[in-house]
Simulated assay, not measured.
Amino acid sequence: MVGFMVMLLIIYGMVFGMVILKNYIDFNNSNYQRASNHTFWETFFNKGNMGEYNIYRKLEKIKGTKLLLTNLYIPKEDGSTTEIDLLMITKLGFFVIESKNYSGWIFGNEKNRNWTQTFSNKKKFKFFNPIWQNKGHIKALQEILGIADDLLIHSLIVFSNNCELKKITVTSSNVHVIKQNQIKRTLRRELTNVMPKLTSEDIKIYFQVLKPFMHADEKIKQLHIKTIQEKLSQSNN
């Protein structure tokens, strides 16, 4: 019996090692580490980073001219910052992506302040409308780039494949609420048979303007977290 258990542990260890090796090779074939400054271990053992990485890998595989940025801390008029999880610049414009690594059933309406996450044990949790959240990111992005044309902006709210988008109501044509496994299909539909709005040179210029807002230092990150906590505290009072 002991020998059988040891053999099982060895097999499980080998399978786990093979999975880690495969993921490590895939990670090294991606530009995610250079874009995010997150190492392999920081990515695979952090739920939020892993969600962003999965989205980034899917975006990398989208055909066409594009440049990707992650974790942009964009300054706002009030002196605070807003964080864009992922940004893809294409000839069609800017795809501003908010990553939500949630499980359970998700209910939400674009017009409501809060959405609901529900589990099979009937526990429910409220969270801030991610479309509204991304609107704040988009506003800061437009201000920093001097962009007034809303047709250049596309808002993507991307949830984990571990959740079920039970009832989501969206009315804006430039807003999409999807799961990770729907990214390729959604973007292919958006990018196909549409007249380009940006040139390859435009894309490079915007990328260079935004690049300095990546890799924020710890001081900026802590100030950003503090600002969010203060806003949450005020909204709960």
Rank of each mutant, 00 (worst) to 15 (best):
N174Y: 05
L165H: 03
I183Y: 03
R185I: 02
R185T: 07
R188I: 07
T171H: 15
R189H: 10
V170N: 06
S173Y: 08
R185N: 10
T199K: 02
L187E: 08
I183D: 09
R188E: 05
I178K: 09
L187S: 11
T171W: 12
S200Y: 06
R188K: 14
P196C: 03
K179W: 13
R189V: 01
S173K: 11
V175T: 08
L191M: 05
M195G: 07
E201H: 05
T199H: 03
N161V: 13
K167Q: 12
E164A: 01
L191C: 06
K197T: 05
V177C: 06
N193W: 07
N162K: 13
T171F: 13
L187C: 05
Q182Y: 02
L191W: 08
N162R: 08
T192V: 06
T186A: 03
S172K: 14
K179Y: 13
V170D: 05
M195Q: 12
K179V: 14
V175E: 01
K166A: 02
K179G: 13
N162A: 14
V194H: 14
K166F: 08
N174V: 06
K167T: 03
S200F: 02
L198R: 01
K179R: 15
K166G: 02
P196V: 00
T171Q: 11
M195S: 08
K197D: 15
T192I: 02
R189E: 08
Q180I: 02
L165N: 01
